[in-house]
């Protein structure tokens, strides 16, 4: 039998519950506990039906069981993660932070997986960041003269739970930090829109880049290369508007259809950040299992 590492999921909202479905599919991870605060929440009931051990003890479920896991996915909120991060570190548990807390190393698996494996706390930035930063990065690989990068994400209202909504400033700040750190461009802006249309809209993101002399041929090549890399761990990732130069800016648009694990397929936002988290967690697990 193939060996697996033990992981726990802290936070039983949309992100945590969708992550659980994905972890259960993983050949490298075993979810020893799904942790929330309330047994009657939708996420906790879902976990029960999946036969996963659950706890309503929040962080104490981890503190009181020191050998419970090697890795935790923290899907609580930015302010909670700031409190929990030192606890995970002290306990020697690798943290995959799903919140926009700015604590850990900014991680986009298509770009910096190997580097991130060396950190005990990695931050998955934001859903919009996971969708847009790879495109921005692909453009920076071609253009040296980037003046400004702007990323705009639209997500369906239904896919934004109370945590996301309460963290909207942190969402912007964390997306902008990730964008700066990974592209090296200091002048950036992130915007997010929630759209309540029914049927629900698919998650989309647009990346605008201001440059003096765009090399559109090589930009297109670089963008399509990164999109291929993205598809390996986010199957529903698609460039819907290839790079165009319009009104003094390069614009690229992507759409993300989810796998429909917990929320329906329109919730590509949920899917992309979780697929990214699974991707980095599996690489870490492989490393551990090889030892």
């Amino acid at each position: 039998m193939l060996k697996k590492i033990n992981v726990m999921i802290l936070g039983s909202g949309n992100i945590g519950t969708d992550l659980l479905v994905k972890v259960l599919r993983s050949p490298y991870m075993n979810c020893t506990r799904f942790i929330g605060r309330n047994f009657s929440s939708t996420g906790m009931r879902k976990a029960s039906t999946l036969g996963v051990a659950i706890s309503d003890q929040s962080i104490n479920a981890i503190i009181n069981n020191p050998d419970c896991c090697e890795l935790v996915f923290d899907a609580t909120s930015a302010s909670y993660h700031k409190k929990y991060a030192p606890i995970f570190k002290r306990m020697g548990i690798k943290a995959i932070d799903m919140t926009p807390s700015q604590v850990g190393k900014m991680c986009v698996p298509a770009i910096n997986t190997i580097e991130c494996l060396g950190f005990d706390n990695v931050n998955m930035i934001t859903c919009g960041g996971q969708a847009s930063i790879p495109i921005a990065y692909a453009i920076t690989q071609v253009q040296q003269d980037i003046e400004y990068i702007e990323v705009v994400s639209s997500i369906s209202s239904r896919s934004a739970g109370p945590g996301t909504r309460a963290n909207i400033d942190e969402y912007i700040e964390n997306t902008e930090s990730g964008l700066k750190e990974i592209t090296g461009c200091k002048n950036v802006k992130a915007i997010i829109n929630l759209n309540p249309a029914v049927p629900c809209i698919d998650m989309q993101a647009s990346v605008c880049v201001k440059v003096k002399k765009p090399d559109m041929k090589n930009i297109s090549k670089s963008v399509s290369n990164i999109a291929e890399k993205m598809k390996k761990y986010v199957p529903g990732y698609k460039v819907i508007i290839d790079p165009v130069y319009e009104n003094g800016r390069i614009i690229v648009m992507v759409k993300v259809r989810g796998l429909g694990d917990f929320l329906p397929q329109y919730a590509g936002n949920l899917d992309i950040i979780n697929c990214a988290a699974i991707s980095i967690a599996e690489e870490y697990a492989k490393l551990k299992l090889e030892k």
Partner: peptide, 29 residues
């Protein structure tokens, strides 16, 4: 003008899609 399409069609398409303020990027799409 850039895409040589009727702006009225663009508006009705966007309306049908239920776009909200801030989704100006969808005009290009």
């Amino acid at each position: 003008k850039e895409y040589n399409v009727d702006p009225r069609d663009v508006f009705f398409r966007l309306g049908k899609r239920g776009v909200v303020a801030g989704q100006e990027d969808l005009i290009i799409e």
